[in-house]
Computed example of a mutant assay.
Amino acid sequence: MNARFDFTGKTLLLTGATGGIGRQIAALFHQSGANIILMDLDAAQLESVRAQLAVRVVAVAGDATASEAIQEALRLGSASFGEGIDFVVPAAGIYPESSILDTGEDLWRKVMSINLDGVYRLLQASIPRMNDGGAIVNFASVAGHRGSKNHGHYAASKGAILALTRSLAHEVGPKLRVNAVSPGTIRTPMVESLVAAKGAAMLSETPLARYGEAAEVASVVAFLCSDAASFMTGEALHVNGGLFMAG
């Protein structure tokens, strides 16, 4: 049992479960006693994560933007762990590189569909099933606060997530808390190309002089779901080593 968090008897619904950060979230919450409902498009990798956790876990391979897959995850979770969800963490996302002028309609819609529309559909479906005192943790990004060259579609989607987080905090409180995490450069496969191209410059601007680890983001997600953050809602916590300091 993780000494910092106790989620015994609680249930987490997590999308993007096979990503670098998603895997760490699943592992930490499971180690802390939670039941886990996993969603991801990659069926083989999803089964790998499910098998590693072994118990108190169910998985649905499907598109996290599709209402049918979301409903199946909710149905399976209820059948396995009983009615009610305590934590929802939409961690699915993509980060393609393209300038605004080179971004076609199809790419723009794909980014918005996964990074924003899927979050809307997941939360709209799951909020009515959440237990009192539950918590939602959305994924924004440093890009959503300050923009990102050649990732305008991504930055726009994450800026929208920040606005959605604050709006939901008004709508679902006091029953639920809604916060966001805004990671900087975290060592995961999604940012390998960015690190290769701009890594040295980014490190020179980072006071902690290193990249973040997925486990460091997972621990902040767990904090926001825990009773330690019981008076926090509508906030975005930055996990970026000082690369961006919000005023």
Rank of each mutant, 00 (worst) to 15 (best):
V60Y: 05
G144Q: 04
G9C: 11
L116P: 04
A156F: 03
G144K: 00
G62D: 14
L14E: 09
S230W: 02
G77I: 06
A218G: 02
Q124R: 15
T65Q: 13
S226G: 14
S226I: 11
L194I: 14
T233D: 01
L101G: 05
G247E: 07
G152C: 04
A140P: 01
V181A: 00
F7A: 03
A26W: 06
A92Y: 00
L101Y: 11
G62A: 08
M190L: 15
G9D: 09
S78L: 07
S141T: 05
G212K: 07
E47F: 01
A201H: 10
L76Y: 05
N2E: 13
S148Y: 09
P174Q: 04
L164S: 04
S113A: 15
F244A: 01
S126L: 05
S157I: 06
G118Q: 04
L208N: 09
I37S: 03
F5Y: 12
A236E: 14
V221L: 00
P207N: 05
A73V: 10
E83G: 13
A69H: 02
A79W: 09
V49G: 00
V111K: 05
S148P: 02
R121H: 13
A73R: 04
A209K: 12
H238L: 14
N240K: 07
G234M: 10
H153D: 07
E171L: 09
S193A: 15
G22T: 10
A228W: 12
Y154N: 07
L243P: 04
S126N: 12
A196Y: 10
A143R: 00
R50G: 03
L122V: 15
L46P: 04
A155G: 02
V220S: 01
L13Q: 09
L41C: 11
I186L: 14
R177W: 03
S226F: 10
S193Y: 09
G212V: 11
A215K: 08
L203Q: 03
T8S: 12
A26F: 01
Y120L: 13
T206L: 12
A222I: 02
S182L: 08
V58I: 15
R187M: 15
G62N: 06
K110L: 14
R23M: 15
